[in-house]
Design a protein around this nucleic acid. Sequence first.
DNA 1: CGCCCCCTCGCTATTTCTGGGGAGGAAGAT
DNA 2: ATCTTCCTCCCCAGAAATAGCGAGGGGGCG
Lengths: 245, 245
Amino acid sequence: MALGFLSGNALRLDGLIERLESAEGLEDLQILIEELRDSYGVDHIVYHWVNSNGEQYGCGTYDLEWVNRYVEKGYLRVDPVVVGCYQRFHPVDWKRLDWSGKAARALMQDAIAYGIGNQGFSIPLRGPNGQFALFSLSHNCNDTEWEDFTVTNRRDLILIAHYFNQKALEFEPGRTPEASQSLSPREIEAMTLLAVGYSRAQAADTLSISEHTLRVYVESARHKLGALNTTHAVARALSRGVIVV
Amino acid sequence: MALGFLSGNALRLDGLIERLESAEGLEDLQILIEELRDSYGVDHIVYHWVNSNGEQYGCGTYDLEWVNRYVEKGYLRVDPVVVGCYQRFHPVDWKRLDWSGKAARALMQDAIAYGIGNQGFSIPLRGPNGQFALFSLSHNCNDTEWEDFTVTNRRDLILIAHYFNQKALEFEPGRTPEASQSLSPREIEAMTLLAVGYSRAQAADTLSISEHTLRVYVESARHKLGALNTTHAVARALSRGVIVV
DNA sequence: CGCCCCCTCGCTATTTCTGGGGAGGAAGAT
DNA sequence: ATCTTCCTCCCCAGAAATAGCGAGGGGGCG
C-alpha cells in the first residue's frame, strides 16, 4: 500500500491544484478525483455536495450501486459523517464521530458490506448561500496507519478540498443569480431592520419616518427583489448578500 | 519591503500552524497575527468575525481608532469587502470588488486616510451555524507587486486563515447558548417554505397539514431561534444556515 | 427642460399573522 | 416504563401586513 506517498511533495500538490484550476466540467473533476485516489493510495475519495432539499451532486470513486443505495435509503439524514461535519469546521476522522445511533450503525454495516472501508476522513466545505459539501477519503487499514496518513496529509487535503469546492461551485447547475436591481440606501436600511426583528412601526420609528414611508421602501424593495411578501424579500436580500445580518 | 519573503518556505508555514494550533486565547492569536504581519511584510492583517447579530469580534493590526470608526459608521453593511466575500467562496483581491457605490467609495477614502493601504486580499471563512469570518491582508504598493504577492502566497494564506478560524471558533464567546436548539424536520420544512415566499396557508397546503399545525411549527421555530416574528425567524434561520434558499 | 429615481407623507379595506389557550397519538431515549 | 420530543388538530381576539389609490419636493442626466 502506498498510503500517502505524496506527502510533503510540494511540486505534486502544485501540479494538482493547477490542473484543478483548469478543470472545465464535472467530468474533469471525476478524472482528477480518480487520479487523486491512486496517488494517495486510498480506497475511495468522494466530493459530495449536499443540497438543503436533500438533493445530492458530486463525484467520487464509490460504486454507483452504493451511491444509489445511499440515496434510496435516505442515509444522508442519519449519516454521522454528514451530521458531524455539519456541526464542525475542522476536518474529522470518522472514528471520532458519534456512531451510537441505531440508524448510524446500520449505515456503517451497510457501508462496509459495500466495501467502503473502515477508516475515513472528511473535510466540511461551506460556500455562499448556505452551500455545504464534503470532501471525504476512506480506506481499509488499522488505526495507526490511518492516523499517520491523516496527520501527514491534512494540510494538503484541506487545500485540495478547498480548490475542489471552488471548481464545483463554478459548475453548479442552475445557480443563475438574476441580475437584481440594487436597493436604495433607505430600502436597505428598512430591510435590515425588518431582518433583525423590528415591526414596520418600530423600523419606521428607528428611521424617524412615518410608517407609511417605510412601507413604501419595503414594497419597493420587494418588487425589486421579485419577492412575494416581506419575509420572502428579507430572505432573498439575505441570500443575495444585499443586506447582512 | 519584504513583501512575501516567507513564500515557499514550508518549514516556516509548518511552525506557524503548529503555533496556531497551540494558541490558548484571543491574546495568542493577536500576538501571532502581528508576527504574521511582520513575516509577510504587509501593512496589516486582520481576522474579523462577523456575527449574525451584527456583533463583531476578532483581532488584527488595524489602529483601534479605525476599528472604532468602522463600527460606529456601520461600515460593515456597506463594505464591499464584506459584501463581496459574503457572496464568494474563493479569496478575493479588493481590486476586483465593486467599489462603485457611494457609501463604498466614502469608506475607501476614509480607510486610506486611516492608513489601511490601497491593496487588499481577503479570504472568506464559513463555519457551522452560519458563522462567517474574514481573514484580510492589506498593504500599500502597486498592482503588480500585490498581484505577485497574492499569487505566490495564496495557498499558504488559505491554510493559515483556515487554522486561524478553527482556533477562533474554539474561543467563541457564546458558543453553545442557544445555537444548540435545532429545528425539527417539520419546522425546517415550514420555515423553508415561508422563506421562499409561501403564505402560511400555502405552506400548510404544500405540506398537506392544517394551517394551524403549520403555525405551531413556525411558532416553535421562532421560539427556538429566539426571534421576534416570522420574518426575523426566517432571517435567523438563514443566517445560521439552518435553512437554505 | 423633461425624465427618472429617491425620499417623504396620507387614506381605506381586506387579508394575514400573532399569541395565548388546550389535546391526543406515535416514536425514541433513559 | 416513563419521559420527552415530535406531529397533528382546534378556537379566538387583537395586531400587523398587504393592495390599491393618491401627492409633492429634490437631485441627477441627456
